[in-house]
Write a protein that binds this DNA or RNA. Structure first.
Lengths: 153, 153
DNA sequence: CAACCTAAGTATCAATTTAGAACCTAGGTA
DNA sequence: TACCTAGGTTCTAAATTGATACTTAGGTTG
């Protein structure tokens, strides 16, 4: 794929390209960070807002778009002795973005943070460290439910 | 990692998070698409501009930022009987974003294009199909130079 | 039951960013 | 010498953002 060959145009028309569709839905700084929050389990409007320091109106719009596109869903819930609140959770389609978010994290930790990764993803059963990578189709993936987060130091 | 546990805040402060750093540099629709072009080998200003239909001023700014952050580099070159031109190519750091772009492509093709992937990535030697996935640390990655693109249909 | 509290929004507006178009320019070709 | 063209810059209107203030609907408390 890495290419000394210079092309004038894409082998795939832009509108048919998955990168284009995906970038249109989640290719935006705040949206990517909101997805990060969702993977961490930070799923209430105000918790996300405070944790990311994102303007309310921007958060509202991003969540609306994510819900409208079946990447997240809004669910009422209540803790004991507390009023009803809403959770913004990942749908299966949203959860499938995990490789994107983890690949970004891996790249950011390695190249920008110079290898000082603040957390490591581990395989729950074996404790082995995990990564996102380009692999053969038949390689065994680790499912999201089998991942545990380890905070370094 | 998928989490019924609700947290109020991130286990990792935002500024130390690789997703944050990465999203700051490449978390933007046009930037992601420019990287797509680079992986395809579309690396001249005007070719990128026409292929993406991106405004000149936006393309200029995005390329400046990518070059300033060592994700792409600008290289003069000339074909025979033609004047000097410039190529915007991926640095090793930029090429390391391949899993991000391919993961987006995979997700977009599967969920938005409903499985009609216009192209498939193949392992050059074995012809096996490739994917981006969360795998064990010791799983064997396929390097960018070993990938060939197959256009479906 | 009235007053109040709080999560989850709307509303408003200045400041920034974008899209689109016109213009510029340097090196090479005719 | 005149012109062509890739690779920009400049300009402006329109859209988006960030910051702050305001609203609302349920639940709890006096």
């Amino acid at each position: 794929m890495k290419n000394k060959n210079i092309r004038k145009n894409s082998p795939v028309p832009l509108k048919e390209c998955g990168v284009f569709s995906a970038a249109d839905l989640v290719g935006d700084k705040w949206t990517l960070l909101i997805l990060r929050e969702a993977f961490y389990g930070i799923v209430r409007f105000d918790d996300i807002r405070v944790d990311l320091n994102i303007p309310r109106s921007v958060l509202t719009n991003r969540l609306k778009k994510l819900v409208a596109n079946n990447i997240m869903y809004r669910e009422p819930y209540r803790e004991d002795n507390s009023r009803t609140r809403y959770l913004y959770m990942l749908t299966p389609q949203g959860a499938s973005l995990a490789p994107v978010i983890i690949a970004l994290m891996q790249w950011g930790d390695h190249y920008i943070k110079k290898g000082n990764s603040p957390l490591t993803l581990l395989h729950k059963e074996s404790g082995e460290q995990l990564k996102v990578a380009i692999v053969r189709e038949n390689a065994e993936d680790v499912s999201l439910t089998d991942i545990s987060i380890n905070i370094n130091e």
